Simulated assay, not measured.
Amino acid sequence: MKNISFYLIINKLYVMTFYKYVKYIKEQVLDTQWFKKAYKEKKVSIKYLSNNYFKTIFSNNHFKYENTKYCFYKLLLIKFDYKESLEKNNHLKLLNINIVNETRFKIVKLLIFLQKKFLDTNYFFNMKIIDREDFINIYIKKYNSYLDKSILSKVLNNTYFLFNKSIYNLSYLVPQKRFIYSIYIKDIINTNSNSLKGDEDISDLLYKKYQIKLSRRVICSIRNSYLIPKIRITKFNEDIECIDSFSNKRVLNKKNISLLPNNLEGVYELSSNKIETYPFLTTKIVYIGSSKNIKKRLKTYTEKYAHTKEIQNFIKNGDNIYFRVAKSLEYRLFERKIIDNFIYLHGSLPKLNTQRVLLL
């Protein structure tokens, strides 16, 4: 393996913010007279680690993952080629940028390879548990390059990426084991709520279903850390209606909507035939809303327009959509409770909801 002198790596480059690092590359190298002269004299050339990049800065993210592909901001893919030392040791600046760009690019590339199934589905049951020491060993073997825990931590904690319209820290792809286990525990509780008597039962089912062996004490500790109750949550609050107050599910059509009482205040839920994948669980629910006149609101969904573009586009697909309703005078509060519970169980908003309910 090629030896790289550790002292040549400027550690501060790893911990710079995206904007500061880009500014450093421009001000300390690209916009300087010494670089322009060396480039003109062909003492230095510029190559890129990948041809897939974006040029416009639109947020504080080093790369983005969209449609099963990823691309970096262009300057973060620069690799300087030079055959000789430059005046005032300026070639060391180029070397350090090369090392930082290559190391970050390789770490991201390997992480995406390992977590691709999760990234393509956004389903945490497809998330691999990655031990950092194991990752370093895989990295060294794959790239024949130097990497240690300190550098890996700097890259993970100071690199950001755009994914599903949100910006995440790169460490998001290397979650703690306890967090992943908490998702499995939630699944066991929510699919076996009637038969569970305690953490011992959860331990047995975790092993049977996922081959994960955790003691009762560890499960209890994880539940306490992530505020997971022993039984499935059915009530959102002692003084508010529970989810069982919803009506039976019906196909969303004019006939079924006409059976609803006039001026019905409450919460309604839309679902489809298709199982939707959310980060923590799967479900057929696609929207949760509320109205002071549910009948009137649902009628709009059977006509040419709906009150959001997301719902309108979804209905255009022609698949059967179902609804169920729950009467509530405090319908805005009830809606917020249900959505908060949905996020807690599933890891995100329902597919067609665009924002959480904020009470004034």
Rank of each mutant, 00 (worst) to 15 (best):
D201S: 02
K40I: 00
F163V: 08
Q33G: 07
S171M: 02
L333N: 15
L77A: 11
K304G: 14
N253L: 00
D131G: 08
S247H: 08
I57S: 01
K235D: 10
K141Y: 15
N224R: 14
Y123I: 00
E335R: 07
K209V: 01
R250M: 01
F342C: 08
S215K: 03
N144V: 03
L264E: 10
S150C: 15
L227T: 09
N248M: 07
S193A: 08
I97T: 05
F63K: 14
S328R: 12
S50K: 06
D239Y: 10
L281F: 11
I285D: 10
R216A: 10
L333H: 13
F280W: 00
T282N: 15
S45Q: 13
I46L: 09
K295Q: 11
L270E: 04
E310V: 04
I219V: 02
L352Q: 03
A38H: 11
K40E: 14
C71H: 14
D31N: 15
E27G: 08
D340S: 02
Y146P: 10
G266Y: 00
K83D: 14
E102M: 12
F135V: 05
H346N: 15
I294N: 10
N224A: 13
T282K: 15
S5W: 01
I315D: 11
F236K: 06
N158V: 12
I129G: 07
Y168C: 03
N263G: 00
E269N: 00
T17N: 02
G318P: 07
Y82L: 08
Y268H: 01
E200T: 05
Y305W: 12
N313S: 09
F314M: 09
K141V: 12
N101L: 04
K20D: 14
K235H: 15
L205Y: 06
I138T: 13
F236V: 11
L252S: 07
Q211A: 02
D199N: 08
D340G: 05
H346P: 01
I78V: 14
Y172N: 11
E102I: 12
I138M: 13
S195N: 08
F18R: 03
I97H: 08
D81I: 15
F342I: 00
S145L: 01
T56M: 06
K74M: 13
S150Y: 13
N61I: 00
N320K: 08
Y184H: 05
I180G: 15
S145V: 05
P350M: 02
D204I: 04
V174L: 06
R250F: 02
L298P: 14
I240E: 09
K254F: 01
Y24E: 07
H307Y: 04
Y48F: 09
F113A: 13
K249M: 10
N157I: 04
S182Y: 08
L95I: 11
Y278H: 06
T234V: 14
I97V: 12
G347E: 10
Y322D: 04
I231L: 09
L205F: 01
R336E: 03
N224P: 06
T308K: 11
T234Q: 12
N164I: 02
R324L: 01
T159Y: 09
F35R: 11
H62F: 11
T103A: 01
I167Y: 01
S45H: 13
Q312C: 11
K292D: 14
R178E: 15
T103I: 02
F124G: 04
L345S: 10
D204M: 10
